[in-house]
Computed example of a mutant assay.
Amino acid sequence: MFGDMMGMMGKLKETQQKVEETKKRLDSVLVDENSHDGLLKVTMTANRKLTDISIDDSLLEDKEQLEDYLVLTINRVIAKATQIQESELAAVAKEGMPNIPGLDLFME
């Protein structure tokens, strides 16, 4: 029993390390989102760090339109980045979980 507990603790520590490595890797995964007409492009990492915004000159003429574009496009890129991050981290966490029958039902 004690050996099983030590094995589980080792597995948890290994999983925690893999989660941290995955988080670091996600800093280099870039996610792009464009406005519906392509006049605005927003790029961020899968860890939701904004890295670039590209604005077509025509949007600079209408402040309100530009603000709307920014809000909509940034929210969409955040949603994409969040989905990628959650999916990657869930896969690592699930891989490191002990094999307990029925536990996988709670992980979905």
Rank of each mutant, 00 (worst) to 15 (best):
G3W: 03
D4Y: 02
M6N: 04
G7H: 07
G7E: 07
G7K: 02
M8W: 15
M9I: 07
M9N: 08
M9Q: 15
G10F: 09
L12H: 05
K13N: 13
T15K: 01
K18I: 12
K18G: 06
K18P: 08
T22E: 10
T22K: 14
T22L: 02
V29T: 06
D32Q: 03
H36K: 00
H36L: 01
L39K: 02
L40R: 11
L40M: 11
M44T: 06
T45S: 14
A46E: 04
N47S: 14
N47M: 11
N47Y: 07
K49P: 02
K49E: 15
L50F: 02
T51M: 12
T51H: 07
D52A: 02
I53T: 09
S54G: 11
I55R: 10
D56K: 03
D56E: 03
D57Q: 05
E61G: 05
E61A: 07
D62K: 14
L66E: 03
L66P: 07
E67H: 04
E67L: 02
D68S: 08
D68M: 01
Y69K: 06
L70C: 09
T73I: 09
I74S: 00
I74D: 13
N75D: 12
R76M: 09
V77T: 08
V77H: 08
V77F: 02
A79E: 14
Q83V: 09
Q83K: 15
Q83Y: 13
Q83F: 14
I84T: 15
Q85G: 15
Q85P: 04
E86Y: 08
S87W: 04
E88A: 15
E88D: 10
A91N: 11
A91T: 09
A93N: 10
A93K: 11
E95L: 01
G96F: 08
M97T: 15
N99M: 02
N99K: 00
I100S: 11
G102Q: 03
L103Y: 01
L105P: 06
L105R: 05
F106R: 14
M107G: 13
M107V: 12
E108I: 10
